[in-house]
């Protein structure tokens, strides 16, 4: 079963870290990624550029409306994610607990719906 682990934290916190602290934290992320990959659990995961780079778009009446900024303004921002295979929620929670930002921000754990996509025309 797949779970999406969405990593939320205050971007300013990350920016205020010293070079050494940032490296140590990144090291933790890399180690987690390596461990997940070795266990065959890693489906994907990326860090995102700051929300200042976000654009939000809506298509209404055939028109594409684009605006600046994230979909939802909040004190904590989506800063990255992991897509992992886990046996059950407890397994996914155990992975999420190793994400460094869980200690300062929060990690939202969402099960992923599996669709069987019908074969395309090509």
């Amino acid at each position: 079963m797949k779970y999406l682990l969405m990593i939320y934290d205050e971007e300013s916190r990350w920016q205020q870290l010293s070079e050494a602290e940032r490296e140590a934290t990144l090291g933790e992320y890399f180690q987690l990624s390596r461990d997940l990959a070795a266990a065959g659990k890693l489906r994907g995961g990326e860090e995102l550029e700051p929300v200042s780079s976000a654009s939000t778009l809506r298509v209404r009446g055939g028109r594409t409306l684009v605006s600046d900024g994230p979909f939802a303004e909040a004190r904590e921002q989506l800063g990255g994610f992991y897509l992992v295979d886990a046996v059950d929620l407890d397994d996914a929670i155990a992975v999420a607990a190793r994400i460094p930002a869980a200690r300062t921000g929060a990690v939202e754990v969402r099960p992923v719906v599996t669709h069987e996509m019908p074969a395309g025309p090509e």
Partner: peptide
């Protein structure tokens, strides 16, 4: 069901 909350006694450390 959806999040697959397990049906078991947690491991000793949890």
């Amino acid at each position: 069901r959806a999040a697959r909350i397990p049906y078991r006694v947690p491991a000793e450390e949890e």
